[in-house]
C-alpha cells in the first residue's frame, strides 16, 4: 500500500518539475518582453525595469532563482498588477475558485451518482432515456454557452420575478451570487458522472458476484448497495482526476462570464496582458492541483479495490 503510494509520489514530483521547467522556458522564449507597449519605453527605463524584475540576469540564473523562490512559495512579482506579487494574487483568487470548484464537484456527485444509478436500475425505461438525453445535452453544450444563457434567463428575462439571480460579481461570496456560477460549472460534471455511473453500474450488475449475492436471497437493495455499488464507483473515482482539469478550465469560463475574482480569470487576464509570471504561477498551481488530486484518486482506488493495495 505505502510502496504503491510512494511510487505514485515519485512519478508526481518529476512531472511537476517538467511542468515548471517547460512553462518557464516557453515564457522566456517569447518574442518581445512583458513591457512592450504601444509606445516603446526609453531604453534606460526599460533597463531599469528589467533589472527590477531580474530579467537582466543570465537565463539559467533566472531559472535557478525562480525554482528557489517557488520552494518558498514565492511566485515572483506580477508584471502587470504592479503593486502585487503573484503569490498575493493567487492568495486572493484561489479561495474563490476552490470554493466554487468544490461546491460544483459536490453538487455533481450528489446529483450525478443518484441520477446515473436510477437510470441503470431502470435501464431502457423512459426515465432512463430522459436522464441520458439530459446528460448528453449537459456534455455537449459547453459552459460558455450555458453560462450566458443562464445569465440571460435568470438575470434578464426573469429579472422581475422571484427567480431573479445576480449574474455578475462576487459580492464577498453572497449565496445568490454563487448559485449560477456553481450550477453552470457543475452541469457537465453531473452529466459525465451520471453517464459513467450508469454504464459502470449496469456492467457491475451483470457480474458473477452480483449473481451470487442475488442467489443468496439478499434483498435487491442490499445487493446493489453492498455488493455492486463499491465496484461500480471505481470508474467514477477515476474520472475525478481528469475532472479537476475540467474544473480548472471551467473556472476560466465561469469567472470570466460572471465576473468572479478567481484564479481562472486572473489566468485569462494574465494571458491577454502577457503577464508572464502570473500565467506561470497559475499554471504551476493548476498542475500541482491536478497531480495532487490524482494522488488522492489513487488512494481512493486502493480503498475501493483491495487488489490494488497489494500490487
Amino acid at each position: 500500500m505505502w510502496a504503491y503510494f510512494t511510487r505514485r509520489l515519485f512519478i508526481a514530483i518529476p512531472t511537476l518539475w517538467v511542468v515548471i521547467t517547460v512553462a518557464f522556458f516557453l515564457m522566456r522564449l517569447a518574442p518581445g518582453g512583458p513591457f512592450d507597449q504601444e509606445a516603446p519605453l526609453p531604453p534606460e527605463i526599460m533597463a531599469n525595469l528589467k533589472a527590477a524584475y531580474g530579467l537582466d540576469q543570465p537565463l539559467w540564473w533566472q531559472y535557478v532563482n525562480y525554482l528557489g523562490n517557488l520552494l518558498q512559495g514565492d511566485f515572483g512579482p506580477s508584471f502587470k498588477y504592479k503593486d502585487f506579487s503573484v503569490t498575493e494574487l493567487i492568495g486572493q483568487g484561489f479561495p474563490v475558485s476552490i470554493q466554487n470548484g468544490a461546491a460544483a464537484l459536490f453538487l455533481a456527485v450528489l446529483v450525478g451518482i443518484p441520477l446515473g444509478a436510477m437510470a441503470a436500475l431502470k435501464q431502457n425505461s423512459g426515465a432512463d432515456h430522459a436522464a441520458m438525453t439530459v446528460a448528453m445535452t449537459g456534455i455537449v453544450i459547453p459552459n460558455f454557452v450555458v453560462g450566458p444563457l443562464l445569465a440571460l434567463i435568470f438575470g434578464i428575462w426573469l429579472r422581475e420575478t422571484m427567480f431573479a439571480l445576480p449574474v455578475a460579481g462576487w459580492n464577498n461570496g453572497a449565496l445568490p451570487n454563487r448559485i449560477l456560477p456553481v450550477i453552470c460549472l457543475a452541469l457537465p460534471f453531473i452529466a459525465y458522472i451520471a453517464r459513467i455511473t450508469r454504464a459502470s453500474l449496469i456492467e457491475t450488475l451483470r457480474t458473477n458476484y452480483v449473481r451470487t449475492a442475488r442467489a443468496k436471497g439478499l434483498p435487491f437493495r442490499m445487493v446493489v448497495l453492498r455488493h455492486a455499488f463499491k465496484s461500480a464507483m471505481i470508474p467514477v473515482v477515476t474520472y475525478l482526476g481528469p475532472a479537476t482539469v475540467f474544473l480548472l478550465t471551467g473556472s476560466m469560463v465561469i469567472e470570466t462570464i460572471f465576473g468572479l475574482p478567481g484564479i481562472g480569470r486572473y489566468f485569462v487576464q494574465g494571458a491577454l496582458n502577457r503577464d508572464y509570471t502570473l500565467v506561470m504561477g497559475v499554471t504551476i498551481l493548476a498542475a500541482s492541483l491536478v497531480i495532487l488530486l490524482n494522488l488522492f484518486v489513487d488512494l481512493a482506488y486502493a480503498w475501493l479495490d483491495p487488489k490494488v493495495r497489494y500490487e
Binding site: 517547460v22 489566468f267 500565467v279 498542475a287
Partner: peptide
C-alpha cells in the same frame, strides 16, 4: 503519455498562444 495526461494541457495551449501570438 501518462505524464502528459497528468498535466493541465489547456494551460499550455494558452501559454503557447500567449508566447507565439
Amino acid at each position: 503519455v501518462d505524464v502528459m495526461y497528468a498535466v493541465p494541457l489547456m494551460f499550455f495551449i494558452i501559454i503557447l498562444m500567449v508566447v507565439f501570438g
